[in-house]
Design a protein around this nucleic acid. Structure first.
Lengths: 202, 202, 202, 202
DNA sequence: TATGAATGAGTGTTCATTCAT
DNA sequence: TATGAATGAACACTCATTCAT
């Protein structure tokens, strides 16, 4: 099932200087996303990605030293998309508004490509990739800042940040799994859970 | 390998009548648990399970028609353990007490074998196994009953049940992933999230 | 083994565009023929074929999606060789001459690689391959045409075609099995059987 | 596909002296016949036979030292059934009548259990079983005698015997494969082929 | 730089056969 | 003698990765 996977580099082989390379890299990553969405985990293999991207398997390995590196790149892409969006949350006046914005961003991203988001959450937990994926970390940092602002008196803001993130991930993933599409409903329930949690912890 | 996985049965091949068989079956399932915990997903293969169980690969297939069947058996084992415990929740007088008991049971089980619980949660979502794993269903049903008792006026008890389960799973899994061991703290935060959510939804 | 033989495609995976590929494909099919001849049915496995062809097992599966597909390809190779030859029979003036030519072609092919021909006849009857092998069909059609010309008054030309084919196959296979090498003798006896049959049926 | 199959004895382990043993042996052989007919070649395995016979796999090996030995026993059973019947042919006055009787016997046996007969013909040709199966030999001897009587002047009665047998086997097997059930038609066509052959060879 | 043919270790699964009970 | 649990060699097939062109 899972191939040998000798500890290969996880970072892209090169930061593509030429425009053409950049396009190729982007198309490969997008192909990876599509294959993951379409075929699921079991059908996520490098040859399928190459074919979907319309490039040779050799080209894939020209830009990514290993399958894991490709996965990491995909995670980074999804993460940074989210990150840019989420950074706006910090600009919001109140902590509460920032938190609400963040919740909205999570929901929006998740429901846009539900399968993909879930699969990536999943991949993120693989030991081999641990530390290479910044989503949790970055989002944790963001959350921590926001929570400190929203609940200045909280005793354990770091724990709260982790818990809030877990709540969001858990509920949003489950919603995606069920095929839920009603954004507003999901968002309001998420707010209930998050603010409920915060108001009842120190 | 026979990778492709022709639609094989997912239920055990025989219910072992002899004492020796029962032992073997149990040892295989326990070995599967250990391999999953130790080696993770990538190292979870039938040969490793057989070796860890101290039996031949043939014996594994004597009792389980496929790798997936073995996984399902493992899920069932963990689930029923949990289920027996959780059924007590229903006996509790108040809905609130029942819910608290359920939260406690979740925490206890999860923190006992954190890696295993997380990996099984994950496997449960595999399309191939869908419908064969009762955990979510059984727990959902339980939760639904409990929530109806705890919040008789709730407008959407089924949605609430799903959300509460997602919250519990999300927070508990994240705690397990972080290696958290403080049961009391985790439990009280879970109560905050769950009751916070319930008190703020209709 | 491929034991259960999940319904895999039976047609080759790609028509090799590069020269190197074509060579590899040809060498694999020829290796299959040799393994079948040398080791018989029992020793006909994909690893042996790969080894004999001097390629990796992966290469075999690059071109043939399954063992059965490889067998079918081998049958087709042998068949088309025969078919090209036999098509000439139709050009013969009289039905009788055409039939004699066909008999000669059968004998020649069979005695060239007796073991192979017999094993392929045998494989052809495997349910899994039914319909993918054109030999019987094509030869039947040919025979039918020829017999209609040779015996315009025959009441059941289709049955006669089937019977004549069975006679030829039966006698030629048996001769191959016995290690018979005298082409002329075999041919004259075949003519006796075929024309004897035709002259005595309506 | 085919298992290791170290050269094991091919003769039954014991000639069962006790009545119970004889019954068991018979039931095993009959089970083998049924499995072969029902599941075909690919499904013909010792465990299936044991199960169908209602005995343990151990018992099968108590009476037959190997799978091949079981196959040989089955061939013998079918053969001797045929043999007894066919021996009557010799009692017939004329060679012609004897030959006609033999043809009839072949047809009858074949169409009774078509799949079984074909599969056994097939097994008979396996090198590992060669020499252990008397069908061809016995029938050849019978045919030789009959042909000598029917065509005293024939130059090569042994070759004729082999050819006649090949014709019969070929036509009858093909008929079985096509699912033909009209005994009379098949018999008359066989007579045409056999006597046509004999009348045109020396 | 791009291609895609080639590689081969790894994996799931079967089934003839053995042997402790 | 009968049982059936256990064995493990054998086999079909996959897929991450390499490298000659």
């Amino acid at each position: 099932m899972s191939q040998p996977s000798p500890p290969k580099g996880l970072r892209p082989r090169k930061n593509p200087s030429q425009a053409r390379s950049a396009e190729t890299v982007a198309s490969i990553v997008e192909a990876a996303a599509q294959v993951l969405e379409t075929n699921g985990f079991e059908g996520f293999n490098t040859n399928a990605v190459a074919q979907r991207a319309g490039v040779s398997i050799g080209s894939v390995y020209q830009y990514f030293p290993s399958k894991d590196a490709l996965t990491v790149a995909l995670i980074h892409r999804e993460t940074s998309r989210f990150h840019d969006d989420a950074a706006n949350a910090l600009a919001k006046r109140s902590g509460k508004a920032a938190l609400e914005y963040l919740i909205g961003a999570s929901v929006r991203q998740q429901l846009q490509r539900p399968m993909l988001a879930r699969l990536l959450d999943l991949e993120e937990t693989r030991p081999a990739l641990r530390g290479e994926t910044a989503k949790s970390d970055a989002m944790s940092a963001l959350l921590l800042t926001i929570i400190k602002r929203a609940r200045p008196a909280h005793q354990h803001p770091d724990i709260a940040a982790a818990d809030v993130m877990a709540i969001i991930k858990g509920m949003v993933d489950a919603a995606g799994e069920r095929g839920e599409t009603d954004i507003d409903s999901l968002e309001s329930r998420l707010r209930a859970a998050v603010f409920g949690y915060l108001s009842r912890t120190g």
